[in-house]
Design a protein around this nucleic acid. Structure first.
Length: 461
DNA sequence: GCATGATCATGC
DNA sequence: GCATGATCATGC
């Protein structure tokens, strides 16, 4: 059977793909073929390959259209309340073959060969809809912008080195900036052999972080995501320095300086009372205009946390994260949990310290949580889930104050659970009535990082 | 001075 | 109204 496009001609493949725009798979595929061959099984990508491009999905390390050197990828979009499109998830690329990757160079690696030129098909995901009825919104080819390629090359090298060091089982998405090593498999127990350790490692794939995919979407759609400032202004800079080195070199001149001195030295006047003061000060030091987001941070999904240390090095407060929903947490597994997702991000810590009532900039540090500590945090999450599921939240009430069974600081060295709410009446629904109080809802709580952990494992290390 | 529960402030 | 960062209050 002849194909509706020319396998030898990249442009003909792209032109054929672009006919998908504004259509669903049901509309775009041949009706007869769909009716006779589509069993209702398979994901969007498989149906797209089989019933639109008319070839059988494969798992070879060559690009899907080998002669044209084009890899086909489809991935879902979500729509924000302001109607803008964003990526619904990370973009999963090829599986990492732990045994082979350690012998490869980036330029000739299976990763680079397969993904150097990608034909992207973005469709709008709608809960409850058949995959055949998702509307295809964007179609275009894409290849690495030269500046991004430098970051991605370093990410790839980092992942390769960790595997070569026998630490494939400790890989985390927070290890890297744009290119992550995300888990991929039928379930969390899908593992494979790694070269320099007997420990089975979770199967992982190279992937673009969700924040990075959003920028791909914007570049394809010719849309702007908003107002961005860049840390890296040229490919030459990206070749010479990492994001980490650039950020640290900008902060370093201000180490040991008070907030007032920094403001004076940078000749900026910003409202020191504003909630966004520290975020603004970070922008000032990095040379980014105040109303702009930092492009590289957004692509890498870096979470910036400002910590104020007391004179004895202990952070003044524990570090809070977003509240969790009681109904949500009991339906999660650790591997798809919100808390794990947060902890696997890369963080930029900005440390200030009180010196005679004044805050002095101490240092900045890029950090992501080591594997062993993520396992510790899992214990806190697991205990919390169990307590909520059993309706076992309140332990006792003394003088009207409710003491809970949630994991406290002495339970775990990494994290604890505490209220995080407007007041006691600011609540989320409970999946099970609380046994002691009979309450159907409870004050909002969140996971916190212990201030002692922040001091010992992040600031002092 | 710390641990834990409770709450505030700001910006969108 | 909510998310997020920040802070307070009390008892040991």
């Amino acid at each position: 059977m002849s194909l509706p496009y020319n396998l030898n001609d990249k442009q003909s493949i792209i032109d054929y793909a672009k006919l998908l725009k504004g259509k669903t798979l049901r509309e775009a595929c041949d009706k007869e073929i769909l009716e006779h061959k589509y069993s209702g099984k398979g994901n969007f990508g498989q149906v797209l390959e089989k019933f639109y491009f008319l070839y059988e999905p494969n798992s070879v390390s060559e690009p899907d259209f080998a002669i044209a050197g084009l890899e086909l990828k489809s991935t879902p979009l979500k729509q924000l309340s302001n109607k803008d499109y964003r990526s619904k998830e990370r973009l999963v690329l090829n599986i990492i073959n732990y045994l082979e990757v350690i012998n490869q160079d980036f330029e000739t690696s299976s990763f680079y060969k397969k993904n150097a030129n990608i034909l992207l098909v973005f469709y709008l995901h709608k809960a409850g809809y058949d995959i055949l009825d998702y509307l295809i919104k964007l179609v275009n080819e894409w290849s690495f912008p030269s500046t991004d390629l430098e970051i991605i090359r370093k990410d790839w090298e980092f992942i390769k080195k960790k595997i070569a060091d026998g630490k494939a089982h400790e890989l985390s998405e927070g290890d890297t900036f744009y290119l992550g090593a995300c888990t991929k498999g039928a379930n969390a127990n899908t593992t494979r052999k790694q070269p320099n350790s007997e420990i089975p490692a979770k199967q992982r794939a190279f992937s673009f972080k969700q924040g990075y995919v959003n920028h791909i979407i914007a570049s394809i759609a010719n849309d702007s995501l908003g107002n961005y400032g860049k840390l890296i202004r040229s490919t030459e800079i990206a070749q010479k320095q990492t994001i980490e080195e650039i950020v640290i070199s900008k902060f370093k001149p201000y180490y040991g300086k008070t907030v007032q001195q920094i403001l004076k030295k940078t000749k900026t006047e910003i409202n020191t009372k504003a909630k966004s003061f520290y975020a603004n000060l970070t922008n000032v030091i990095l040379g980014i205009e105040l109303d702009k987001n930092i492009e590289e941070f957004e692509k890498a999904e870096i979470t910036v946390k400002t910590v104020r240390l007391k004179e004895n090095n202990l952070p003044k407060e524990d570090l809070s994260f977003a509240n969790f929903k009681y109904v949500g947490i009991i339906n999660e597994d650790w591997d798809d949990s919100n808390f794990k997702d947060i902890l696997e991000h890369k963080f930029l810590f900005v440390f200030y310290q009180f010196e005679n009532e004044e805050l002095v900039l101490r240092k900045v540090k890029f950090w992501n949580m080591p594997y062993a500590d993520i396992q510790e945090a899992e214990k806190v999450w697991a205990k919390t889930k169990k307590i909520v599921a059993k309706g076992d939240i309140v332990k006792e009430i003394i003088n009207g104050i409710r003491y809970t069974n949630f994991p406290n600081k002495s339970f775990n060295s990494v994290s604890h659970v505490r209220p995080h709410a407007k007041n006691a009446l600011d609540t989320y629904a409970l999946p099970t009535k609380d046994k002691l109080t009979k309450a159907k809802e409870y004050t909002k709580h969140c996971f916190w990082l212990n201030n002692t952990y922040v001091r010992d494992e992040i600031y002092l290390k």
